[in-house]
Design a protein around this nucleic acid. Structure first.
Lengths: 353, 353
DNA sequence: ATGAAAGCGCTAACAA
DNA sequence: TTGTTAGCGCTTTCAT
């Protein structure tokens, strides 16, 4: 583990001759062609189909491997007009939901022989534009936007660029998208709380520009209304995506409405923040107050949080395949996946008076 | 929000003539040169220095903007042998620490006129190699590895590639790195628990191949030993990076050692998992049992978790600058940043017998 | 099946 | 300052 057995480790990177065939400089098709005594174009063809072929092809591939040949993506891209890369724009990767989405997208994209390039836009329109421009400069073959706003300025602009793209996680307009049925998810949460017998319910509503947030809240509110339960405006707060905003929002609601017996947060981190604020206020979630979150992020199970599960990995890979269809000019149709209610220990009936 | 006011939104991407100068096909330097009546190389030069210049340069930039010119990064890269991209390899982005690091790296890299490309390797050697190879195919100008293993196979191999690289978050061998002084951080945690009066302490030790995990645990153990406090092997568990592994590890320790009065976890999510396991075991963290985590991730404050703060954003941007130094052939020296103990509500003395 | 030749868009000599 | 020329490494006609 000490570096003393590795005396070269501190040396700065420097060009130096290597063993084997290699003499100097980078290995290109021409290098291989010279070694093999054939034309570069023959090497190109032999390397294209990675298996099979005749005697010559096999020899060429052997030499290429021996020399440590690495195809130059830039050169290929320049020639073919395809970069083999797709751009992914997310709100921000410190939001674990976006990170899960990206991991799924990356994996699917790799399976299909592409590479994924991700950019954080922080939901800021200037940053969205800047990052899309950079993606275009890299000549990505398509774009997956996880950061669409319900306001169409952004997505309409991307559409005008005439680059293939799909939306994921949030929908906007009727551009092709893969999303959860967030409205239904909100309904599941609202119905669950109503079934438990609650009637004084608080809502932590998330980001106003995100279809995911607004539809979850709307679904919950409508499901409650159908049961004759009204959620007053002073029991609703908009929040961000982390526990601190959820905690603060919950505190404000508790100040105004100490009588509430249940909370629905449109994402799990806000729900965890609410759990903390409730404990600070002397109430035990799952005993005195019911809490329902949304997403079923990894920490939710450990926290025993009732939540609405969203199949983020499935969404990511479905969006990737949909993008490939758009790239290939096939017809695509937006998908809405189904949410699932996961009941855990933070569910409880209202305390008996 | 409905698409009826946006009848074009559903149409598949298709080449179509646009307004203004543009006639057909993509806009290249030649297109602009023809419009301006100059040679393409003149356009290239005029566009390079984005401000100032004479009359001609100004006119050229105007035309470029009007035509919506987007430089082709692949073509420039092919010519200059520099891609303007740096590769970032992380354990996985769903680990919020890695996501924070990447956000900082991305931002710094953008300020310096580069673009960042990130890859999840899941700490798997095969994946590490595969993703580095893909980075090389993209001809990245340098690599930032956040997923180094203490076993040197991986980093030695990267070194043999003769591409500039630095390590961040974990160090290995004596390759240039920006890390926290994890050992000292562990000592802070251990000393804190000893100061509170604890002597029966459990440790959740993280990933064995990560210098960050092992040194944090070692620092804690050594600080305790110096005070005459031994941590028995049956009070130690290795864990992953999320709350569920922390919860399980804590449960196993509680089964064997119900007498422990304090826990140190080498990362906050394991600590949160421990908090949950303790509550399930009928003990209140911060009252019956002290819990100390590590990293000070965003949720830690909301959870009132005592922890050791690591300046991840600073680490990310320092590593980026260090990489630039390596790329430019300047001498660099590894950095170790200082941890800071953040005392919150999960700190408490042992219960009086 | 292989070779020859051209060219993707850009930049960096060099020349004027 | 501007134009000329050449070429980065690759793919893809076309001809053999």
């Amino acid at each position: 583990m000490d570096a003393s057995d590795n005396p070269d480790s501190a040396k700065p990177p420097a060009r130096s001759p290597r063993a084997g065939y290699r003499t100097t400089g980078p290995v290109t098709l021409r290098t291989i062609a010279e070694q093999a005594g054939v034309h570069p174009s023959t090497v190109s063809r032999a390397l294209k189909r990675s298996a099979g072929g005749d005697e010559t092809a096999r020899r060429i591939r052997e030499i290429a491997a021996e020399l440590g040949y690495r195809p130059d993506a830039a050169a290929a891209s320049l020639r073919t007009r395809r970069s083999g890369a797709v751009g992914v724009l997310v709100h921000r990767l410190t939001d674990v939901v976006q990170a899960i989405l990206f991991e799924a997208i990356e994996q699917t994209v790799l399976e299909l022989g592409y590479q994924a390039i991700v950019a954080n836009t922080y939901d800021d329109p200037d940053e969205q534009q800047r990052r899309v421009e950079l993606m275009l400069a890299r000549r990505v073959d398509g774009l997956i936007l996880a950061d669409a706003h319900t306001d169409l300025t952004y997505v309409d602009w991307v559409d005008s660029l005439e680059i293939p793209f799909v939306l994921v996680n949030r929908h906007a307009g009727d551009y092709p998208s893969v999303t959860l049925d967030d409205y239904l998810g909100g309904r599941l949460a609202g119905s669950h709380l109503a079934d438990l017998g609650h009637s004084r319910i608080a809502v932590l509503g998330g980001l106003p520009h995100s279809s995911a947030s607004t539809e979850r809240a709307a679904g919950c509110l409508n499901a409650l209304r159908e049961r004759g339960i009204e959620v007053d405006d002073d029991a609703v707060e908009t929040t961000g995506l982390d526990a601190s905003t959820g905690r603060e929002g919950m505190r404000r609601i508790l100040d105004r409405r100490p009588d509430i017996t249940a909370v629905f947060a449109v994402n799990d981190f806000d729900a965890l923040g609410a759990v903390i604020a409730l404990r600070e206020g002397g109430r035990e979630p799952g005993a005195d107050v019911a809490v329902v979150g949304f997403n079923d992020v990894p920490v939710a199970e450990a926290a025993q949080l009732t939540t609405v599960r969203s199949p983020h990995a499935t969404m990511g890979s479905a969006a990737t395949r949909m993008l490939m269809d758009v790239i290939d000019g096939r017809h695509v149709q937006s998908m809405r996946l189904s949410p699932e209610l996961i009941v855990r220990a933070t569910s409880c009936p209202p305390p008996s008076p």
